[in-house]
């Protein structure tokens, strides 16, 4: 594409572009920064008013990143589970050797990770991790809003662990097939997973009633929640597909909203704009659009195509900045509002 002929978006005009050379593998908010994990094992903290700070943390790619109450936690291909403070101090929580640390999550002072078929939980009181075993390699982990339940996805469904009298009790939500990412709905009533097939699966936790959300032309790599209903916003199609989760039955038998329709390729990452009924969608060709959660949405161009798949979109905690990262390592860091 001839870059000269492209009209830059306001975000590209006002923001900064960094070429890091390493794929963006994840990002998370911490304090007032966005912490980004890269394929070369580094972390960069992007602050609204300062230059980014780089920390070399892992050798090999960072596979997962989450924020805990005193730093970001990361899992890497070097088998290390690390905590990195915003002033660049690196602490090793555990070393799994040649086993990858695929997923990490945190709630207050509790941190957990998955490596292979096990989830390892560190709580305040003790240094030895509590181990939760599963039947196959873990695809994703999620903690609910109260820190009382952990959802773990793998082949054959989701295991939901509840903390009762200081013991983790499990309950199985079965569905044939290989499950990847997992998440709770904001009200904690539903579990959602992405699948190896081009679809998502969901369960109502109360009665384990389950349903599939299918029809995608490609694998669903990303989902998030947006709006008051709320909507489950999903990547995997040429538009952001938004399933309504209000009412007793959620999206069962209802049509999704399809927004952010200006991208010519499949969406690879979606993120909501906190406090607004709006969604960012990043596409396989690097384009990013902001779209309204409505039947007739207006789209705003955030980023023109870069030629590389959008692998992350994050909003700074104060909502002042947006970060877009792609699979080749380009970062756009831009003020979100007119100044």
């Amino acid at each position: 594409m001839n870059k000269e002929s492209v009209i830059k978006s306001r975000f590209e005009e006002n923001g900064k572009v960094f070429e890091t050379g390493a794929p963006v593998t994840g990002a998370v908010s911490i304090e007032n920064a966005v912490a980004v994990g890269f394929g070369d094992g580094s972390i960069r903290f992007f602050w609204p008013d300062n230059d980014p700070i780089e920390v070399q943390a892992h050798s090999g790619a960072i596979l997962s990143i989450a924020s805990s109450n005193d730093g970001v936690i990361t899992g890497g291909q070097d088998g290390r589970f690390l905590k990195i403070s915003t002033n660049a101090e690196v602490e090793e929580i555990y070393n799994f050797g040649t086993r990858w640390v695929d997923n990490v999550a945190a709630f207050e002072s509790m941190v957990l990770c998955s490596s292979g078929k096990n989830v390892y939980i560190w709580s305040d009181e003790n240094d030895k991790p509590k181990i939760l075993e599963h039947q196959s390699t873990i695809g994703g982990i999620a903690i609910d809003q109260n820190g009382r339940r952990i959802a773990v996805s793998c082949y054959g469904g989701v295991t939901l662990w509840r903390l009762e009298k200081n013991k983790w009790k499990s309950s199985k939500f079965a569905w044939k097939g290989s499950h990847g990412k997992v998440g709770f709905s904001p009200d904690g009533k539903y579990l959602v997973t992405t699948m190896q097939e081009n679809e998502l699966h969901a369960w109502r936790i109360r009665d384990k009633a389950s349903f599939a959300m299918s029809g995608y032309p490609s694998k669903v790599k990303s989902f998030t929640w947006a709006g008051d209903n709320p909507y489950l916003v999903t990547a995997g199609a040429k538009e952001a597909i938004c399933w309504p989760f209000d009412g007793k039955e959620g999206p069962k038998g209802r049509k999704p909203l399809c927004i952010a329709s200006g991208g010519q390729q499949n969406a690879t990452f979606v993120e909501s704009l906190p406090g607004e009924k709006a969604v960012f969608a990043g596409f396989r060709n690097g384009m990013v659009l902001l779209s309204e959660l409505s039947e007739h949405p207006n789209d705003v161009l955030i980023q023109n195509p870069t030629g590389s798949e959008v692998s992350n979109i994050s909003i700074s905690p104060d909502r002042s900045h947006i970060l877009v990262g792609d699979s080749k390592g380009q970062i756009l860091w831009s003020p979100l509002w007119e100044q």
Partner: peptide
């Protein structure tokens, strides 16, 4: 049938910078 571990690991290796 497919090798689920290969999908995960090959995908992970493609995220490396080298």
């Amino acid at each position: 049938t497919v090798r689920g571990d290969l999908i995960r690991i090959l995908g992970g290796l493609m995220k490396r910078a080298d």
